[in-house]
């Protein structure tokens, strides 16, 4: 599906950086403000869906191919599990946060140790899941 429309293309060109930046803000500020990996990943994925709707799915395939997004989806889940196993090597339980990863100053950006790392992987997984869903359902002939 591709709109040969100047209004849709121009509005997408203007608004797409802000959508992606807002999604990344939601992912990074998971422990400080509302939002998180799931919400931010959904916003980033919706931005990519808007991009491929307005510019055509072949240009989106050049930016982020179907195989790359499928791989990112799998490695996002694997990243979560591997971060859980880090605490096991230090002798703590699975997904232990406090003594293994430093907590830092409360209220600053890089302060929550495991939470922000897990949510970055979760955001990548959710965003690439939405892109893969749209690619699998849509494809070229939509």
């Amino acid at each position: 599906m591709k709109f040969e429309d100047d209004i849709v293309n121009t509005v997408t060109r203007i608004i797409l950086p802000f959508i992606t930046l807002f999604g990344l803000y939601l992912i990074i500020h998971v422990h400080l403000s509302p939002g998180g990996g799931f919400s931010g990943g959904t916003v980033v994925g919706a931005g990519f869906v808007l991009f491929s709707l307005s510019f055509g799915i072949s240009i989106q395939e050049k930016k982020l191919s179907h195989r790359t997004s499928a791989l990112l989806e799998s490695y996002g889940g694997l990243w979560y599990v591997l971060l859980g196993f880090v605490a096991l090597f230090y002798g703590y339980n699975f997904l232990t946060n406090d003594p293994v990863f430093g907590l830092g100053q409360s209220g600053s950006l890089f302060s929550s140790g495991l939470v922000i790392l897990v949510n970055i992987g979760l955001g990548v997984k959710v965003a690439s899941t939405i892109i893969t869903l749209f690619d699998s359902l849509g494809g070229e002939e939509l």
Binding site: L26, G35, S39, T42, A46, L142
Partner: peptide, 18 residues
Amino acid sequence: ITEAALGAGVTAVLLVAT
């Protein structure tokens, strides 16, 4: 935030594609 992005954005696109 999740409802606005997922429910009003992505679900509508997927259902229109269907």
